[in-house]
Amino acid sequence: MSENLIEIKNVSKSFGGVKANVDISMSVKRGAITGIIGPNGCGKSTLFNSIVGYHPIDNGSITFEGNEISHLMVDEIARLGMLRTFQQTRIYGEMNCVDNMQISVSHRPDSKDSMFASRKGEIRERAEHLLEFVGLYSKRNLISGDLSFGQQKLLEFAMALMNEPKVLLLDEPTAGINPTLINGLIDRLRRANEELGITLCVIEHNMRVIMNLASHIYCLSNGKMLANGEPEKLQNDPRVIDAYLGGH
């Protein structure tokens, strides 16, 4: 098994005249937490979308566990065990929390779930256990669309865990969440990584969060890879400070 779960080599993507990603190369280490930072509009979410197959890339290569995935469709990639959450939280708003969780089970070929599987038993227990993990157990029977934004974010995270992915791509997990809840979320992200062994790749604007969480950080600017390295190294990189962190 290679050490890098995701390998991105020279990926470019443009929309008309806008070059959203230019010649991006990066890798996500198995078992680690990798961060991506950069100013708004620098191409972070585009890169995420390229990885999970939302649009075809112009050139370059993306491999997952050594296999090329840049030509696969969104749901095919998800069934390989790579999942993403959305910047604008997306849940199934008219279903209750437990139902949201239960339908988030893995649809990989090796999973036990089938189209007409029963909704009771083990699957329900796991759903409730994970809702407890993110602190939503008391809300489990409420319609998920009625939850607050922060709670919906937690639910989306729990749904991702329900799927038992190998790697989870999180697009700004702490955006719009109040400071006390952020600490809880960081703690849970770390526990998902350490206890459940899920590799994480996180886009984040909150510097305190990402510098604490990630072991390796990539910084994008204007669609290009500006710098990468350990958090401490990056914090002192004059280019990063200039482009993003601010030189004050």
Binding site: V74, R90, Y92, M95, I103
Partner: peptide
């Protein structure tokens, strides 16, 4: 069965359902 949940998931947000591997 689970089919019902998947059907409702497609109704509520099909892009999300695909992103979850359904």
């Amino acid at each position: 069965t689970q089919f019902g949940l998947a059907a409702n998931a497609i109704r509520d947000d099909e892009d999300k359902a695909e992103a979850m591997g359904i």
